[in-house]
Computed example of a mutant assay.
Amino acid sequence: MIYKKDANFPYPLLTNTSTSYESSQFILDVDLQENASTYRFNITYNIDSDFMNRLLEKEQAQLILVIQSKDNKFYKLRPSDTYVEISKSRISVSKRTSIQLHLQAKENIHFNDNNDLSGIYQQYRDVIMVRKHSTLGFSNVVIFDSRSNKPLDLFQKKLDPTLLSDIKIELGYETIIIHYKSEELQFNNLPMSNSLNNPYIYMGLQKALQRFIVNNGDDEQVDLEEIELPDDQLDLKLYNLMKKKMIREISIDTIDEVIYVISEKILEKFTAAVKGLSSNGN
């Protein structure tokens, strides 16, 4: 389980709000990346307590990563682990996923040499013993909102009857703008109109990624691990989106592969929408 409020334990517990320790920081930071088949939770943490760090080094305690979404998942970590990679078939990441790091005793832990305790616990540390498998502490809760970093957030739609073409793709300061000559081209009167617009989304991503390569590479490819953060705001959004999806490089030849990874199967959704219209006799 994830502890979102102070919990009462019959022994001193290391938490960010604990008064049982002189210095009680247990800070967790998580960055989530994904591709078509896996989620990668990149983890950094800091524990102020020398006593707890010694327990981890001696393997008397262990770290447990708790991921709470539609269900709870638990993953044992070594102190040197910097990420957990999980198949999408094994975990469901909902619109709001909570993540917390727990310290768990791997054997009975005596607190007689725990010099980090404060107050009354310092006086009675010689008689404090925490049993095997008990929780020794827990971090802050990191909340991941899967609604962020969506490719469709990059887009704007505008109507312009004066266009000399049916649609026009414009690369704005922060967004990709799709200009439509008529409302009919937006399919607003049909169910799943958003999915029916996905070919235009695809065209916009192609154009934006081509410019990204020109702006940030050698006209042919870009190594995302090596470049500086882009100054252009649209390029920066595309950069962050690709990094979140664990893409390391992009070239003119791999643009379509990159779009497949970052676009959440928009052409499959378009095909499903068309099939839905066909099955309804439209």
Rank of each mutant, 00 (worst) to 15 (best):
M1I: 07
M1K: 14
A7R: 13
A7H: 09
Y11P: 07
P12D: 03
N16Y: 07
T17A: 13
S20Q: 06
S20V: 04
S23Q: 15
F26P: 01
D31C: 02
L32I: 15
T38S: 12
N46T: 09
I67G: 03
F74L: 11
P79D: 09
T82A: 12
Y83V: 05
Y83Q: 08
S87F: 05
S89E: 12
I99F: 05
H102R: 08
K106E: 11
E107V: 08
D116W: 04
L117R: 00
Y121T: 07
Y121M: 09
Q122K: 15
V127K: 12
F138I: 04
S139D: 07
V141F: 08
V141M: 08
D145L: 07
S146L: 04
R147K: 12
P151D: 14
L152F: 12
L152M: 10
D153R: 03
Q156P: 00
K158E: 13
L159Q: 10
L171H: 04
G172L: 03
E183Y: 08
L185A: 15
F187T: 05
N198F: 01
I201A: 02
M203T: 11
Q206W: 03
L209S: 01
Q210D: 13
Q221V: 05
D223P: 08
D223C: 04
E225R: 14
D231I: 08
K237Q: 14
L238Q: 01
D253Q: 14
D253F: 08
V258K: 00
Y260S: 10
V261Y: 03
E264C: 09
I266H: 08
A273S: 15
S278F: 13
G281N: 14
